[in-house]
């Protein structure tokens, strides 16, 4: 069956469906290609060639040869499919409308950070918290999870790499509420334990599929995705001589950005720090990760106190260098 054959070559479900449709429309074309029957031309000898080839050249070729009626039909169908799957263009007004309607700012529950970030964590943005150990990153993550679930009634997906997700602390942040309410709020926070980058990628892909089917049904679903910490997953694969680690890092980053943008999810990741020039500290993961987050915050805890300094390293529309202080209470 040609249908099965093609499934072996594709990864994502979207492509699966596209190609399945394609096969159903022109079974004979692909079938002959698959069986190794050469199409009456020197252009293609396998399905991959057919799909990878310059389609315009192929169409022109089909036009010239009166005998290749089926090839022409096939090429037309490929064009039709390509038209339907590429992203439509959007103008500025539409983008603004989308931003105002779908991209809310989620309050973190910490007033000072909200005002620093112009309202909080923006849906559609990837926000990074960087800082040395015990500088308050996880505390802010837990606080944001509690607040988004309680105040915004949103779903929270919490990816925990350091066994530091503390449900007790979240319950404490939510405060004294009715047991039933607490139950609903706590049930909308889902925690995943992920200890390697491959599990993370698989999980993000699955999240994408779920989110897509939810969008079709008009369901709210996840509005905050927290990864605490992304750096501990990436550090073990980074820095070796092979470029694979870097590639994995960038594909994770772009997947996060895509999830954020297409499904209106606010993404919050944490990163650790390394020593920079002249005794300063800077976020880890290097230059190529720098382009991934929309917003970067640097945390620093004042020695021997509960006060933390936060400053903006990067933000789409707030001046960098702006700083605030917050305190971690019991």
């Amino acid at each position: 069956m040609p249908f099965i054959y093609l499934h072996l070559h594709v990864g994502g479900a979207r492509h699966c469906r596209v190609k399945a449709r394609f096969i159903r429309w022109s079974p004979v074309t692909i079938y002959s290609v698959k069986k190794g029957h050469r199409i009456p031309s020197s252009f293609c000898s396998a399905v991959e060639d057919f799909l990878l080839h310059d389609l315009h050249a192929l169409a022109a070729h089909a036009e010239e040869q009166p005998s290749s009626e089926r090839l022409r039909q096939g090429v037309d169908q490929v064009f039709a499919i390509i038209d339907t799957i590429h992203q439509p263009w959007i103008n500025g007004m539409e983008l603004l409308e989308d931003a105002q309607k779908n991209k809310r700012a989620l309050s973190t529950g910490c007033e000072r950070i909200d005002s620093l970030l112009n309202g909080g964590l923006h849906e559609g943005h990837v926000t990074e918290l960087a800082g040395p150990s015990s500088s308050g990153k996880t505390q802010l993550c837990l606080l944001a999870a509690a607040n988004v679930a309680y105040q915004h009634k949103g779903g929270v997906t919490y990816v925990d790499t350091g066994n530091s997700f503390s449900p007790k602390r979240i319950a404490h942040f939510i405060g004294q509420v009715d047991q039933k309410v607490l139950r609903t709020v706590m049930n909308s926070i889902v925690c995943h334990r992920v200890y390697d980058i491959f599990t993370l990628l698989a999980m993000l892909h699955e999240l994408e599929f779920r989110r897509k089917s939810q969008m079709c049904k008009g369901d709210g679903g996840v509005s905050l995705l927290i990864i605490d910490s992304i750096s501990s997953l990436i550090t073990p694969i980074l820095g070796s001589n092979s470029p694979q680690g870097r590639a994995l890092m960038i594909s994770t980053g772009s997947l996060l950005k895509k999830l954020a943008h297409e499904y209106n999810i606010a993404v919050l990741v944490t990163n650790h720090t390394v020593g920079g020039n002249r005794g300063t500290i800077k976020p880890a993961l290097g230059e190529s990760w720098k382009t991934i987050p929309h917003t970067r915050l640097l945390f620093f805890r004042v020695c021997g106190s509960n006060t933390c300094d936060v400053s903006i390293l990067k933000h789409p529309y707030v001046a960098s260098g702006k700083a605030a202080k917050f305190t971690i209470h019991d």
């Binding site: 449900p167 139950r183 706590m186 889902v190 925690c191 334990r193 999240l207």
Partner: peptide
């Protein structure tokens, strides 16, 4: 998704 838990269960 497989293997995940809600905060309520964990509590």
């Amino acid at each position: 998704i497989n293997g995940a838990q809600t905060a309520w269960e964990m509590l």
